[in-house]
């Protein structure tokens, strides 16, 4: 009897697990299609004429791959300028933000200066601070010094705000830095600046680049403060321009889907380029 069962079980189990196995893959695929559906329909309808949209509905494949919408919306958004603005702002912010974080973390993590815990708490508090709390005084201050409606205002503000997280992250990375290396460098006659530039930066290059990518994308995606600070059309970023875009009478549906597509595309490209770096960053970010 026992022998009999032993023979039957191996035959039975694989078949039932096979069904579950492919059923679960099917289920997951359906769920993924549901999640990606909004982005797929946005793309489909960016290449249709308005007339075709109403004739065949939003789910049909575009009959021709017309770039007319993309061209028209690109011009109306002044997309080239917006891309340039977003890119320059994000790049400058990431550079300045990483530099500030690096200097802070060098003093806190490598230097272990007095009051280290106090400074760290101070930076951690700033990570969770809602921007609404700073918005009006910053708006007033920047107006007073003539930096309102300037792309630099956003660079300065976000370099500092992002450096709170950067300082926290790098300080904890630097705490584990081997003391022997530092001691050897000092014996060789390194001063503090040389220590930073020749030893700490090269060894921590991977952490710095993760931070750079993170700051770049965070700045690119920001909305609330740019909305307040960048009022003129020539200074606006991609997300701002897409949010402000109202289609045109008679072409609302396809124009708006095209605008949404143009807002999504740069991020999709970043995701593809930086996928590995980002995965590391999300997990590093979760440790905070």
């Amino acid at each position: 009897m026992a022998e009999h069962t032993l023979v039957i079980t191996p035959h039975k189990t694989p078949r039932s697990t096979n069904i579950t196995k492919y059923f679960s893959l099917l289920l997951l695929t359906v769920l993924l299609i549901v999640v990606l559906f909004p982005l797929v329909v946005i793309t489909l309808n960016s290449f249709k004429t308005e007339e075709e949209y109403f004739r065949n509905g939003p789910l049909s494949m575009p009959s021709t791959l017309s770039l007319d919408n993309v061209r028209a919306v690109w011009d109306r958004l002044d997309y080239t300028t917006k891309l340039k603005n977003s890119f320059m702002i994000s790049l400058a912010t990431a550079l300045a933000g990483v530099t500030l974080s690096l200097l802070n973390a060098f003093a806190l993590g490598i230097g272990r200066i007095k009051g280290r815990a106090f400074f760290l708490v101070f930076f951690v508090m700033a990570i969770t601070l809602p921007h609404e709390m700073l918005a009006y005084p910053l708006y007033y201050m920047f107006k007073e010094v003539g930096l309102y409606d300037s792309r630099w205002s956003i660079v300065v503000i976000f370099a500092v705000l992002h450096s709170a997280f950067g300082t926290y992250l790098l300080a904890s990375v630097f705490t584990a830095f081997p003391v022997e290396l530092l001691e050897a460098a000092v014996i060789d006659g390194c001063n503090k600046l040389q220590l930073l530039v020749r030893i700490v930066i090269p060894i921590n290059w991977p952490s710095l680049s993760v931070l750079f990518v993170f700051f770049f994308i965070w700045t690119w995606n920001e909305f609330f403060l740019p909305l307040i600070f960048l009022i003129s059309n020539a200074n606006q970023t991609v997300p701002l321009a897409v949010a402000m875009f109202q289609g045109q009478r008679g072409a609302a549906a396809t124009f708006q889907s095209t605008a949404a597509l143009l807002g999504t595309l740069p991020c999709l490209i970043f995701f593809i380029i930086f996928q590995r770096t980002l995965a590391k960053g999300i997990i590093a970010g979760s440790i905070k």
Binding site: L100, S101, L103, N104, F106, A107, L108, I110, G111, R112, I113, F119, F122, F123, A126, L129, M133, L134, Y136, P137, L138, M141, V156, I157, A159, V160, L161, S163, A164, T167, K192, L196
Partner: peptide, 21 residues
């Protein structure tokens, strides 16, 4: 000799976060 490295970060923080707060 490390405290000097904290000056830009703390000054910037004072202007952009603490004072507005």
């Amino acid at each position: 000799g490390y405290i000097g490295f904290l000056i830009p970060g703390v000054l910037a923080f004072l202007i952009i976060v603490i004072v507005p707060f």
